[in-house]
Write a protein that binds this DNA or RNA. Structure first.
Lengths: 193, 193, 193, 193
DNA sequence: AATGAATGAGGCTTCATTCAT
DNA sequence: TATGAATGAAGCCTCATTCAT
């Protein structure tokens, strides 16, 4: 197995543990045990517990973003893209319990301030994706000519909040309905007529 | 100074530290230092770090709840009461940075499951307050005859989420507007005609 | 209540606790609680936890010794005195569970080395009592002319060991029989013919 | 040096310290210092101070028991075996001051109640050894046909008591004579004719 | 005589991190 | 690459003791 593969394994294991127990309560040894190696060997792949955390989270976020980005390409007009971004993101989290739990644990993942955000790059990338859709919608005349920057940031925040909170009472029961109504609401507010 | 006063001082100091640094990173010594006493003396007032945390949070939540409860009494009809609960809660958090930060750090404060919620009593009390307002509104014919229990729980959740998230980008800039629009939305959904 | 009486109360409480939990596990506060006063007030009566322990034990040992000494005076010949010393000591411990437990916990109580024995005085006194009986028995021609000093010390050791160990399996069941047979044995070895 | 060896070193050091200063007064750091390592490294070998104590004692008891068990095999008839068990056990303690001191400090080591005895297994094993010798003696017609179970337990108790107490005044002076006479006594009571 | 409050020293334990192999 | 062993820093908690009132 290659080094990169092993790293992936470590990051997955770490993510799952961090998601369940939080940063402090998760020990490097826990991670090592889960991958089936020793504590010290973890330090061959990462320099720090901190780096272990950040790389684990980054990788998960990137995979999420890339998945969505790929699906966006399957349609062409902005309205459809917007719906896809929303619905697929929701579904993705639905299928990735660990990431979901993690986002609920660590708010700061979405801080979005370039200076202190450890995940600024990936978050920013995701926001750019959304911004592009909105800009396209305006260009196509499908969306109101809103202030793209601020609306994007606003939507991104509401969005994350919604995704996370939808799972707080995560018996799964009615969160689907909640999501659909929320989406409809926002969609209505965005589309002309 | 009385023992009760000293306790208040300790809880305030603790709250502030827990809010800023989280449970794990805040040491009992930090708290002691902040109040100007020794670590061991803290244990004269509480039995545990855990108890220190829980009592600090409980006290803060109680003060919040009591403040709102007192303000509710200043008006009589349900619509006004509803608005007061909403707006004053928002303002209260506005003025109490520590509590705000804490709520953002520890989601579980609002778990609301009797079994595992360490703050169930005070949370439940707050929810009862809201429920009473809604019930009164229905009796007065001001609100739609909704399912009181479920609507209350739903509103409470949305509410907390909103209060907390409104401050994620807590430069305070545009959160006021965001709040007002959110409140208007819910209010419209609740009031007849 | 006089100071002396209060001291007695403290010593009794302390003895009972030391007996049950040992020196280290018994806290000064435990003792205070049991007497119904505060920790700090204990220090008005004793200077130390150490002194609290030693005085408690001394007092108990003295009471034991005095009780036996008084009973010895009720008979005149050495054989009877010897039996009384043995049997009454046994019975005394039978009735004083705390002292019994304590002797089982702290071996060093019977160290009998003048230099380091904290209870040398009272132990020595008890041994002198036994020695006097033996000397009298020899003088009366009832006992073999043994080496009084060594035999006394030997008997004292065996004796204590016996008293303590008789209670290790203190279901009480057969320790009486064990005691009587042990006493008979030693008595036979001591008496002429 | 192998891990097992290091463990032995630790257990020896711990035993010696526990024997001299008792459980409470002996700190984990004391043990570490004595072996020449750091406090925390002790926790690489044991999980607890409690476990450190129990494993130290267990190992010592096992070595004792195994030594005797090995010597028993050197003779065949029950009478000789009985004498060997007695005398060699005595001598073993003679040569192992630490174990001796420890047994004097912690009575509960020989509690012999399956439920609460931390050393039940090794103690029980030792008793079985003795029981086997007695049973063999009866089969060979050398011993009285006593109630094997109860006599074994009785002898084991007396035995331990004797071994321990023989050393209370452990200047070693006359304890040899004391031991021999005690052994003779019991032996006479056991052997036919 | 009595108390509440405070303190300091010390002990147990965890864990991220390093190092030699 | 991988591991076992070791370390140091830090945190929680207990408790004998003191002091002011």
């Amino acid at each position: 197995m290659e080094k990169a593969d092993k790293k992936q394994k470590i990051f997955q294991a770490a993510l799952s543990l961090f998601a369940h127990y939080g940063y402090r309560k998760t020990t490097v040894e826990d991670v090592a045990d889960k991958v089936g190696m020793t504590k010290s060997n973890i330090y061959f792949y990462v320099k720090n517990k901190q780096e272990l955390y950040e790389k684990s989270v980054s990788h998960a976020l990137e995979k999420w973003r890339d998945t969505i980005a790929a699906e966006i390409e399957t349609v062409s007009n902005a309205k459809e893209k917007f719906v896809i971004v929303s619905r697929r993101s929701f579904e993705y989290l639905n299928d990735h319990e660990d990431l979901r739990a993690l986002l609920m644990k660590d708010h700061d993942i979405f801080t979005l301030s370039p200076s202190e955000d450890r995940f600024y790059e990936v978050n920013h990338g995701a926001m750019m994706m959304l911004k592009e859709v909105i800009r396209q919608g305006i260009d196509e005349g499908a969306f109101y000519p809103v202030d793209v920057d601020h609306v994007t940031e606003f939507l991104f925040s509401v969005y994350i909040m919604f995704l996370i909170k939808a799972y707080v009472k995560s018996d799964g029961s009615s969160s689907d309905r909640m999501f659909e109504e929320g989406l409809a609401l926002i969609f209505r507010g965005l589309c002309k007529i």
